[in-house]
Amino acid sequence: MTNSATADAGRRWHDMGGDPAGQINRDEHDYALWEKRVDALMVIASKKKHFTVDGLRRVLEDMGPEAFETMTYYERWIHSITQNLMEGGVFTPAELGDKMAEVAARGASYGEASLGD
């Protein structure tokens, strides 16, 4: 396939360098414990070669622009980490589903579902 960089066929949503965009919003927020845990799981699982940062990026990209606009940063990360771990055979979708149901049954708040931990 040939293309010119002026035609956009094949351009992916995350590849946004040079696009027109609005004013930069400089509001900042601190990360919640669950978000820090997502970050830690990424660092640990990639250091132990269960997947690569490249794989993390691939799935984030494949999630598409709607996910970028509607999900928070670490929501997208846990989705991608989970996908990569399943691709790597660390656990199966059914194992994850059973565990998520077990977690949700513990209580309505994060603290309860995480056993106060």
């Binding site: 040939t2 293309n3 960089a5 094949g10 590849d15 360098g17 490249d54």
Partner: peptide, 16 residues
């Protein structure tokens, strides 16, 4: 100046 699908590392704005 190519446009494959998938995870690629060359930013679009620099191709070509």
């Amino acid at each position: 100046s190519i446009a494959p699908p998938g995870h690629v590392r060359c930013p679009w704005y620099l191709r070509g």
